[in-house]
Every structure is written in structure tokens, then in C-alpha cells.
Simulated scan of single mutants.
Amino acid sequence: MAKLIKHQPHPDEPLNFLKEFTQARIALGSAGSSIPTKPALEFKLAHAHARDAVYSVMEVETLADALEQFHLPVLHLYSQAASREQYLQRPDLGRLLDETSVNRLADQIANDGIVLILADGLSATAINQNAVELLQLLIPKLRAAKLKLAPLCLVEQGRVAIADGIAAELGASLSVILIGERPGLSSADSMGAYLTYMPKPGLTDDSRNCISNIRPEGLPVAQAADKLFYLIQESLSRRLSGVALKDNEGLLPDK
């Protein structure tokens, strides 16, 4: 059990001690009727980072080169969103594969295994920085467990549900999509992982399990890989995912 530590805050800033527990903007102080210049500028910078993350671009060639270490086919796919602007305005198009991608998947041999997908989502920065490191920890675990792997997929302008169509085309029994999450003002590099058993088009979010905030300042990649491997094993064993699949293993250490 975590120990409670008593803090002695500075009398002039009684909430300052809370800053060590969160990146939220608290105890900013005041300057007249506003906040001091430094936190005001820091807020604007964080907002700029968040906007940059939304418009960041997946480094496809760099990622594809890095994925060669796993000795699996790598497929480069696209959603039906033709541009970043359309992707942001039409979430429905980001859930569907374009015709070229569907044909590319149709050329693959059906694989009743696990398909691992990397999608830019709302922060390609998160994928560029965190995805390969997670796969370096996860894929050896899957292979040691003798689980079959489908081709790796890189998807541009993709939403979470695009994994359903990819898995259905490949005949995969389980999909895992790593995707950039909506950036907050302190988490422009946050990656999420969504797991779905027997994925097919038309499923809703209650059919998926999610591990969120994967990044150095959030959930560390190593712990995320352990948690994801646990959920994959449970999903395949119980033949389900989503709200019916409970996380009964506590992997996060007490603080």
C-alpha cells in the first residue's frame, strides 16, 4: 500500500505541493486580475504543441524500416479520408479503408492470427515516438507464446475502428491497433492501444479493450506491453473482448 506523505507547503502558495502529483495547471498564481506572464506563455506553448500533434505526419518510411526487424510483411494502407482536413471533419471516413488498401489486403493469404496495426490517429507524433519500442517488447512475447501474427499494417488518416475492416480482410481473429490519442495540453505524445476479439465492420467501442496514455510521462511502454500481452492472452482464452473482458491483473506498482 502506498504511504501517505505529509507535505509542508509554502505559506504563500499553499497548493504548490500538489504539482509533484500532476501535470495539470494548478497553483499558477495571479498578476492583477490575470495569471503571471510565465504560466500564460507556457499555456500558449502547450496549446501549440497540441495543435502540431494533430497535424503531425506519420514517418512511414522510418517506421517501415524499423519494422523490418520483426521479419513480417509490412502493408502501407490508407483510410477514405483524402486529407488531414477531411479526416478531422469526417471521422466516419477515417474508419474505412480506401479501395486501393482493400485490394492490397485481398492479395494477402488469410491468417487466423493477430494483426498489429499502427495508425496516426490524432497524434502521429505518439506513434513515431512510442510504437516501435512497444512492439519490440510485445512481439517476442507473442512469439514465445506461439501465437500467429498477420502482416503488420501502417495506416494513414486512420481511426480506431479501421482495425475492424483490416482484420476482417486478413481473416485475423484478434486486432491490436496502436494509435495517437487526442493530445491534451500536457500529453501531445500519448498513444493508445485498442484490442478487439473477432473484429468485423460495424462493431462499437464496447467491443474493445483500451490501454491509454502510453508515453514516457504516462504509462511506461514496458508496463503497457505487459498489460497488452495479458489482455491478448485473456481475450484469446475467453474468446471475447470489450466490456465482457475484465482486467484482473494489477501490473501497476503502488506509488
Score class of each variant (00 low, 15 high):
2 A>H: 09
7 H>P: 06
8 Q>V: 08
9 P>Y: 03
9 P>D: 04
9 P>Q: 06
9 P>E: 06
11 P>M: 11
12 D>T: 10
12 D>P: 03
12 D>W: 09
13 E>F: 06
15 L>H: 12
15 L>V: 09
16 N>R: 00
19 K>N: 14
19 K>Y: 07
21 F>A: 13
27 A>F: 14
28 L>D: 15
29 G>V: 13
33 S>Q: 09
37 T>N: 07
39 P>F: 02
39 P>D: 02
42 E>M: 09
43 F>V: 04
49 H>P: 03
49 H>D: 15
52 D>R: 10
52 D>P: 06
53 A>F: 00
53 A>W: 03
60 V>G: 02
61 E>C: 01
62 T>V: 04
63 L>F: 06
63 L>R: 12
64 A>L: 01
65 D>E: 11
69 Q>H: 13
70 F>D: 09
70 F>E: 08
70 F>T: 05
72 L>M: 11
75 L>M: 15
76 H>S: 14
77 L>R: 10
77 L>G: 08
79 S>I: 01
81 A>I: 04
82 A>N: 10
83 S>E: 06
83 S>F: 07
85 E>T: 14
85 E>S: 14
87 Y>G: 05
97 L>Q: 05
100 T>N: 10
100 T>E: 07
101 S>D: 02
102 V>M: 06
102 V>A: 09
103 N>H: 12
109 I>S: 13
109 I>E: 14
110 A>S: 12
112 D>M: 04
112 D>L: 06
113 G>R: 09
113 G>D: 12
114 I>E: 14
116 L>N: 07
117 I>L: 03
132 V>M: 12
134 L>V: 03
136 Q>K: 15
139 I>M: 13
140 P>Q: 11
141 K>I: 10
143 R>G: 04
147 L>Q: 15
150 A>V: 09
155 V>I: 14
156 E>M: 09
162 I>R: 01
162 I>E: 01
164 D>T: 00
165 G>T: 11
167 A>S: 14
168 A>D: 13
168 A>S: 12
169 E>V: 00
171 G>M: 05
173 S>F: 02
174 L>V: 04
177 I>W: 05
179 I>D: 02
181 E>V: 05
182 R>I: 11
182 R>N: 10
185 L>V: 10
190 S>E: 01
190 S>V: 01
192 G>S: 13
192 G>R: 07
193 A>G: 04
200 K>W: 00
205 D>T: 08
205 D>I: 07
209 N>P: 04
211 I>Q: 09
211 I>L: 14
212 S>H: 02
213 N>W: 02
215 R>E: 06
215 R>P: 07
220 P>H: 13
226 D>C: 08
228 L>R: 14
229 F>N: 15
233 Q>A: 02
235 S>P: 01
237 S>M: 11
238 R>H: 14
243 V>W: 03
245 L>H: 06
248 N>C: 07
249 E>M: 13
251 L>E: 00
253 P>E: 07
254 D>I: 10
